[in-house]
Design a protein around this nucleic acid. Structure first.
Lengths: 215, 215
DNA sequence: ACCTCATGTGAACCGCAATTCATTCCTTGA
DNA sequence: TCAAGGAATGAATTGCGGTTCACATGAGGT
């Protein structure tokens, strides 16, 4: 064999791959899933359609990776807050606010990542992402419970509630047709954080949360 | 014109339509969206493929209507609780529990309705349903606020948080591969209700929810 | 009975974008 | 410079299931 991948080639390959991913991401961030076609991605990345398939086995896997990359960043941000210092309630508020703020800044992308209807295969990847985000909150809630700052209970359920709460609350405001106003956004974030904190916070002495309990 | 729809025919037409809808619903409830094909629906309803199109303009609209029907029932159940008597916290707990209990009973269908990846068009209908459900909670929260039982704030945001919280908390347990145990389910429902109640309940005197606030 | 129009049928069609692959273009090492 | 194989190309193919439509069947009215 007289051909072996030289460093230059390896670099170029990696660069291509990165450019394809970047193009895919950019397209989603601009036009949502509706415009995320392989042909468009290829063109935007400056390669031929077929070339995309030299790097990714299928459309679903390409976009799943885009999702994974974006997700990972968000997860890292949250993880940093979770592992930071400050009392658990402070961290909870910080994590939720961080997510909400970042989502509202990169609205179109966040909308696509969180709610925009998309192909089933990509949607499945979203579920995994949510689960991963949830894990960070599970960790945080367990920390809070150990320190006696949060109320007892299954941390996974509480985490799911927290994640669901802030995600759903962002759905409306993230919609492309919604208005984006700094003031409104701040108030929104604040209230979402209140809600999330309330989910895990210890109830007052005479447990309000017992009201209306079935059993 | 020598032909006019007689009552018998009208009845038969309505019956066909109903059977198609029922078949569609049944298929989703059994196999999820994956098996929800027009041809399958037609067969299951005892009509020809083309006949389905005499009653519904497209696959998306057929399933959107299925979704609407199932949704409406859920919404009505919640509306009944919202308009019932009892203090707002009791109603909140009741509404959430009712939804969760019903969802866990009709697991497969609930899973499809809430999370299962599906075609974009159908997914869009889901968003509307969630919004509709949310409205009931907005009403409830406003009632609670007026009575001074719930804390102040934008009811729509709080409602979104509540809906997101219980929906997301149900995602894991509703997944087809998850186990269904009565005891576990009851505990789950109870904890979800706690979380949702906490979102809207008034905080204790020295507001815990102020902890860690940004501004 | 029979004409007319509505309803039902299901095999064929179609649209669309993902995916493929024969071909061309590059890169390597001798 | 060249042989050998890797990488890139993009037009053609594919596949799939929704949708159509020419025809059959059945109902209504005279």
């Amino acid at each position: 064999m007289v051909y072996r991948r030289t460093q230059a080639v390896v670099t170029r390959l990696e660069d291509n791959r990165a450019r394809i991913l970047a193009a895919a991401r950019k397209l989603v961030a601009e036009g949502g899933w509706r415009h995320a076609h392989i042909a468009t991605v290829a063109e935007s990345a400056g390669v031929a359609t077929g070339t995309v398939y030299r790097y990714f086995p299928s459309k679903a896997e390409l976009f799943a990776e885009v999702l994974a990359i974006v997700s990972r960043r968000e997860r890292d941000v949250i993880a940093a807050v979770v592992d930071g210092d400050g009392a658990p309630p402070v961290r909870m508020r910080g994590a939720v606010c961080a997510f909400a703020r970042r989502a509202l800044r990169g609205r179109r992308l966040a909308y696509a990542m969180i709610v925009e209807p998309c192909e089933p295969e990509i949607d499945a990847a979203r579920l995994e992402w949510r689960a991963a985000l949830g894990e960070e909150f599970v960790r945080l809630i367990r920390i809070g419970q150990e320190q006696g700052a949060f109320r007892a209970g299954d941390a996974r359920i509480a985490a799911a509630c927290v994640v669901g709460a802030f995600m759903e609350a962002l759905v409306g405001p993230l919609a492309p047709e919604a208005f984006a106003d700094e003031r409104v956004a701040d108030a929104l974030i604040d209230q979402i954080a209140d809600a999330c904190l309330a989910i895990v916070a210890k109830p007052p002495a005479r447990a309000t949360s017992r009201i209306g309990r079935i059993a």
